[in-house]
Design a protein around this nucleic acid. Structure first.
Lengths: 341, 341
DNA sequence: CAGTCTTATGCAAACGTTTGCGCCGAGTTC
DNA sequence: GAACTCGGCGCAAACGTTTGCATAAGACTG
C-alpha cells in the first residue's frame, strides 16, 4: 500500500505539500496540485487514518455499546445514531454485549484502546465495574435509556416512569380494573421505573395492585410469551401492560394461540414504539417516542460534547413518552368487568 | 492520557520493557514485572491501539456494510458476525448504507482509510463503482447474500434460487395452483434469483406463470403491505410467495385487515427465517437458514482469509435453504381451487 | 533599488507503539 | 579458568501522518 511519500516522490514534491493538497490546508499552485492529484490516482493512494489519528489525537470514531442488536429497539436506535454520526463524519464501532457484563467490560477496554472520541451506552446488566471504568476513561459518554449508577455523564432517555404511568392510565381510562404487567428484569432501572409508573397509575385510580399480577420477563418476545403463560393462568385479568413491545408481541402471540381475543377479551399495551408493532394483527398499542429520533438526539448530544472538548455541564435530556393507540386496546367489555365486581 | 513512556519512567525501566510486559512477548523478571504493573495501575494507563496499529500494519478491525440495520435480517446477521469477531479479538465497524450507493461509496472509502483488516458487504444497490473500488482495495472481502458483479471475492450466500423454488414447491405441493409473488427490487440479484426459483417451480409443475401475479416490493414490511394491496386486488390467488419475511409480514397484515383469512383463504410463505416470524399470528412459514449462523460463517471465512494474508483460492459458500413450516400455509381449500378450474 | 509583503514550498519533529540488535552478568560446560 | 549460553534488559529505528518553522522567489512600495 502506497504512502504519502510515494506520492510525493512520483509528483516530485515534498510530502508536506501532498498532505496540504489532500487536506486543503494551505494554498498550493494549480500546477503542483494537478501533479499531486495525478500521482494519487496513479498509485491508488488512500491516506492512513491511523497515522493521522496518532498525530491528531482523535479518531473520528465513536463506540456504541448495546445489549442486543437484534432487538428492534436497539436496531432502530443504532440506525439513528449511525445516521447522525455519518453526517458529522464520524464512524461507529458496534459492540454487542449480549447482556454479559464481562463482555461489556472487555468491549469498553477495547474501545478505550482504540481511542474512540466518544461513547454511547445503552445496555443492561451489571454496572458496578462499568461505572468505575467509565469514570476513569476521559471519554465523553452518553447513556441512553438507563441510569448507570455512579456514572456521571450525559443522559438521554424516555421518561420511563411517566411512560408506564401513561400506558396504565390508558388502560384505566378504558375502564379496565384488573390490569396485569409483564415487567422487565428487576435488575434494570428501566424496568423498575416503568413498573413504578404502572403502580402510580393504579394507586391514583384507586385500583388494586396485586403482586401476583406482575410477572418478570426479559425484554424478548420469547420472554413475553412465557410470562403471558404464567400471568394469564394465574389471574383473571382484562388488560396487560407489557413493559416493552417485544414482550407485548410475545404476549399477543400467546393470546392468539389460546383463543384469547385481543382486544375484545384482553387489552394489551406495549412500550417503545418499534416499527414492527404496527404490522402485528392486532397492531400493538404502545407508548414511547420515535426510537430513531432518540438515537439521533443521543448522537447529537455526544458530538456536541466532543466538540466542546468534554467540558460543560452534564445534561439530562428527558423525552416525553407519547401514546400510540392502535388496535390491541379497547374499552373493557361489561361481562369481563362483571367477573370481578 | 498517559503513555508507555510515563509508565516506564515511573517504574524506572525502559519503555521497551513495559511493552514486553504488556504483550508478554519476552521474559521479564518478576520484580520488574510487578513494578511495571503497579505503575500501569497507578497511571491508569491504557495502551494505544492506534499507535500499535500503525506499527503493526493491522487494526484488528473489520468493516460491515449493510443496507439497513433495522431490517431484522441484517440485525441478526450482524449479531452473528459481531459475535464471531468478538471471540477472535476483532472489532466491527458498522456502516449503514441506507440503500444509497453514494453513501456506500463514502463508507468504503472511510473504511479503507481506517485500514480495516477485512470487509463484509451485504448491501443492495448499485454495484458499478463498488466493484472497482473493492478490487483496488487490497482488503479481504466477503460478500454475503448477493453477487456483486465484477467483484472477485469470497461469497457466502443462501441458494436464493433454490429457496424460491422450495417455497413455491411447498405451495404447489399443497395443491395451490394460482400462486402470486411479491418480489424484491429487480435491481438486486437476490430478488431475481428468488423470482427465478419461483418460476422454475411453477414451470416444473405445469402451473401457469402470469406476469400480473408478481408485484415488486422493496423488502420492507411497508412495501409488502402495499404490494399486497396491488396483488390481491389484481388477481384471485390462493397463495403468495413473499420473497422476504418482512414483506410477508406486511402481506399478512394486509390480509388480516381485509378479512382474508390466512391460511384458510390464502397461504403465505416468506423467505429468510427472521426470528420474529414465529411470533406473528399466524406464524409465518418461511424458507431459509439460521441467519446468525450465516453471519458466523461469513465472519469465520473472512477471519480465515485474513489469517492467510489474503491468499488462497476464492471460495463460494452456498448454504442450503430449508423449509420452516409454521401456520401461514396449508392445503388449498377446494372452493378456492374451483374458482380457477 | 533596498526593503517589505506575499505566495509557494520544504525540513524535521512529534504522535505512541513494536521490534531487531546489542550489551551485560551469571551460570554452565569442558 | 576460558569459552559459551542465556536470561534480562535498553537503544533507536520505523510505522505514516500533521504542522510549526524556515526559505526562496517574485511583486509591490516609496
Amino acid at each position: 500500500m502506497s504512502t504519502i511519500k510515494d506520492v510525493a516522490a512520483l509528483a516530485g514534491v515534498s510530502y508536506t505539500t501532498v498532505s496540504h493538497v489532500i487536506n486543503k490546508t494551505r494554498p498550493v499552485s494549480d500546477k503542483v496540485r494537478g501533479e499531486v492529484e495525478a500521482a494519487i490516482r496513479r498509485l491508488n493512494y488512500v491516506p492512513s487514518a491511523v497515522a493521522r489519528s496518532l498525530k491528531q489525537q482523535s479518531t473520528s470514531t465513536i463506540g456504541l455499546l448495546v445489549s442486543n442488536i437484534s432487538n428492534p429497539f436497539f436496531a432502530e436506535l443504532a440506525q439513528g445514531i449511525e445516521d447522525t454520526c455519518y453526517r458529522a463524519g464520524y464512524t461507529v464501532i458496534l459492540c454487542n454485549s449480549d447482556d454479559q457484563p464481562e463482555r461489556q467490560q472487555t468491549y469498553l477496554r477495547v474501545l478505550l484502546e482504540k481511542r474512540i472520541d466518544g461513547l454511547i451506552i445503552c445496555s443492561a446488566g451489571d454496572d458496578l465495574g462499568l461505572a468505575e471504568h467509565v469514570r476513569e476513561a476521559q471519554v465523553p459518554v452518553i447513556i441512553v435509556d438507563r441510569a448507570v449508577k455512579g456514572v456521571t455523564s450525559d443522559l438521554v432517555q424516555i421518561d420511563h416512569f411517566k411512560g408506564g404511568y401513561l400506558a396504565t392510565r390508558h388502560l384505566l381510562d378504558h375502564k379496565h380494573k384488573s390490569i396485569g404487567c409483564i415487567a422487565g428484569p428487576d435488575t434494570t432501572s428501566v424496568s423498575m421505573d416503568r413498573l413504578n409508573g404502572y403502580r402510580k397509575a393504579l394507586a391514583e385510580a384507586g385500583a388494586p395492585f396485586r403482586p401476583e399480577w406482575v410477572v418478570r420477563g426479559d425484554f424478548t418476545a420469547e420472554g413475553g410469551y412465557k410470562a403471558a403463560r404464567i400471568l394469564l393462568k394465574r389471574a383473571e385479568i382484562s388488560a396487560v401492560f407489557a413493559s416493552n413491545d417485544l414482550m407485548g408481541i410475545g404476549l399477543l402471540r400467546f393470546a392468539a394461540e389460546h383463543g384469547i381475543r385481543v382486544p375484545h377479551q384482553l387489552s394489551v399495551i406495549g412500550f417503545d414504539g418499534i416499527d414492527l408493532g404496527r404490522y402485528n394483527y392486532p397492531a400493538l398499542t404502545t407508548v414511547g417516542q420515535s426510537i430513531r429520533r432518540q438515537g439521533e438526539i443521543a448522537a447529537g448530544a455526544l458530538l456536541e460534547r466532543i466538540r466542546k472538548g468534554g467540558e460543560g455541564r452534564l445534561r439530562k435530556i428527558m423525552m416525553n413518552p407519547e401514546l400510540t393507540v392502535r388496535e390491541s386496546t379497547r374499552v373493557a367489555v361489561p361481562f369481563v368487568l362483571s367477573r370481578h365486581e
